[in-house]
């Protein structure tokens, strides 16, 4: 089972980042999150989500989903709005041992679902 993304439902609240960060760090911080709200195009209101899984980097843009295989991620892909690039972070483990992925649990709009 994978986390699915409906990017149009995303409201860029970043709850998923914080919930995922808690899973990795047992603290409040988005810095190690396996999911990132891509929000570097503020004046254009262009935002979406990036999710690193064991095999793929999922780029959920408003116009659609693109999946790039880990190891084949395009050079210079706009995946690094953070001081800690997503490719250096742990892959999503579906919150192993927890009652459902926390990002799905905290997503208020259903943009993330199973």
């Amino acid at each position: 089972m994978d986390i699915k993304i409906d990017p149009i439902k995303c409201i860029a609240c970043c709850a998923c980042e914080l919930a995922c960060g808690y899973h990795w760090d047992d603290a409040m911080s988005p810095i190690t999150s396996s999911i990132i709200v891509y929000r570097t195009r503020e004046k254009k209101n262009y935002f979406g989500l990036m999710l690193k899984t064991e095999e793929n980097l999922v780029l959920a843009r408003p116009e659609g989903i693109e999946i790039q295989r880990i190891g084949e991620v395009q050079e210079g892909v706009e995946a690094d709005p953070s001081a800690k690039p997503i490719m250096l972070r742990d892959a999503c483990d579906m919150c192993d041992g927890v009652d459902g992925p926390l990002c799905v649990r905290f997503c208020p709009t259903g943009a993330l679902y199973l």
Binding site: I8, A12, C13, L18, K44, R61, E63, P108
Partner: peptide, 30 residues
């Protein structure tokens, strides 16, 4: 879209320098 960790999207973006239905990023900067 929302303020940080707000489940309700309080803010609304309007477009008047390009078609507001366009979802893909364009070259229009503002």
């Amino acid at each position: 879209s929302a303020d940080y960790n707000c489940p309700y999207p309080i803010n609304t973006f309007v477009k008047y320098n390009e078609d507001p239905t366009i979802l893909k990023e364009t070259d229009v900067a503002e």
